[in-house]
Amino acid sequence: MRKARPGRGREASAALSFVVLIGVLSLFADMTYEGARGIYGPFLATFGVSGALVGFVSGLGELAGYGVRLLSGYLSSRTGRYWLITGVGYVVNLLAAPLLALAGDWQLAAALIVLERIGKGLRNPPRDAMLSHAGTVIGQGWAFALREALDQTGALVGPLAVAAILYLGGSYHLAFAFLAVPAAVSLLVLLQARLRYPNPRSMERTGEAFAQKNVGSRLPAAFWTYLGAMMLVALGYADFGLISFHLASETSGSLIPILYAVAMAVAGASALLFGRWFDRGGMPVLTLAVVISAFFAPLAFLGGTGAAAAGVVLWGVGMGIQDSLMSAPVAGMIPAARRAYAYGVFSACYGVAWFVGSWLLGVLYDHSVMGLVAFSVVVQLLAVPVLLATRRAAGG
């Protein structure tokens, strides 16, 4: 797979500025919904639900969020209305989290959790397609990693703010209400980005990427092989809702969002490190990241608080890769006009795997924590040979 050469001059400056602005948008958005996600598990636990239900709700949210990306990606590529679809997604995503302050039963809470994921799903394919245009100038790994690093800065601050509210005696409902503030800021930044960059496609540097050799109507074999590998990773990856549900019986409630904040900080740092490295080393870099993060489950579910903290760190490495670097290889396989559609297909299949895995892991948790750990580790490691096959299929 060929990499885009780093750009110079005004072209590179404009591309970098666009990525940073989208990153700032993501920063405040993540303050909102990641601040909420850090307490989904213990919040649902206040209604007396089971681990299987927590896993089901978390998985259903991911399924709905990833599934709607198929429609979002298709419509974005078909209509070219990237900003409109991105904007609708952000509005839904950012309103659902603060509205949890009004949830008085688990059913409403679950519905809002799923709605928040749907909003995120709507916005991601067109947003990632716009980022990929800038990535042809400054490097795909770096473009996605830089956005992710800013994104995870917000994902660090949001849970810490929620932890402070809980530590000072505030309720979960008050914590959710506070998240309306960063949500409003994020929507203002979204408006600014739309006004400054009405046509991000104009940044696309043609003739450099591997994608230009694959302009037919079919998605290439390398895409499907890579998708299979990442579906295996998703199948074995526990949502933090289940981890936090487990930790609720092991440690204090205010510590859980702090651990989540640590995971988000690690995710941002690992995205920067592996993103820049990916532009130089390609698929082996992503494969190494998968191997490292695959061992989060034994630490998070079988040890004490210290081991759980280490497990959350490894979990953060994996999330940083899945939320950023996972998108970079797709940009190198697909031509610009079909990239949003490819992201939608990729995300829909990935989301199905995440849902099935989350539900299975929740059921395993209720019956055998050791079984959960074994399933998680083995399935993720099975992705390694498939990733290596992707490299061969892509010719890189």
Rank of each mutant, 00 (worst) to 15 (best):
T153P: 06
M203V: 11
S324I: 11
P284Q: 13
V379Q: 06
G121Q: 12
Q107C: 03
G362E: 01
L187M: 13
L190H: 15
G135T: 10
P329T: 05
P200D: 08
G268S: 10
E250C: 00
K213R: 15
M230N: 15
Q322V: 11
A238K: 00
Q380M: 12
A163R: 05
A52L: 00
F355Q: 01
A337S: 12
L100R: 02
L255P: 00
F28N: 03
G228K: 10
P220K: 08
A164D: 10
S293W: 00
L299E: 09
T136M: 07
W106H: 08
L232C: 14
G80V: 14
S252G: 12
G141N: 12
T32M: 02
R117T: 08
K3I: 11
G73H: 12
F346A: 07
N124R: 14
V386F: 04
L259Q: 02
R338M: 07
L112F: 12
S26T: 10
H367Q: 07
Y365F: 12
P42H: 04
L71S: 08
A271T: 04
A267V: 02
G141R: 07
G306C: 06
T225F: 05
A261N: 04
V157I: 15
R2N: 15
G80S: 14
R276G: 11
S254A: 14
A109G: 07
G87E: 09
Y350N: 12
G169P: 04
L174D: 04
Y40G: 00
V49G: 00
L168F: 15
V290W: 11
A177H: 07
R339S: 12
V262S: 03
R392I: 03
L102S: 12
L259E: 01
E11P: 03
L191Q: 11
G396P: 01
I334Q: 06
L288V: 15
A177W: 05
T46V: 03
G351Y: 04
G158L: 06
L99Q: 00
L174A: 14
S254V: 03
Q152T: 02
M264S: 09
P198D: 07
A261M: 03
F43H: 03
L259P: 00
V91S: 02
I118G: 05
E148G: 13
H133I: 01
Q192G: 09
V24T: 08
T225R: 04
G67Y: 03
E250F: 03
G104Q: 08
Q192N: 11
R147L: 12
A211I: 01
L388K: 08
S244K: 09
I138H: 00
G65S: 09
D105K: 05
A14S: 09
L388W: 13
E204A: 14
L195N: 05
R5K: 12
L227G: 06
G306Y: 13
A310M: 12
P385Y: 05
A161R: 02
L299W: 08
L21H: 01
R339T: 15
R194V: 15
I118E: 11
L60T: 06
F28L: 08
W106R: 07
A12S: 15
S132R: 10
Y66N: 06
E204W: 14
V262N: 02
G9Q: 04
M370K: 04
R117H: 14
V20E: 02
L112G: 10
Y66Q: 09
L168C: 06
A36I: 04
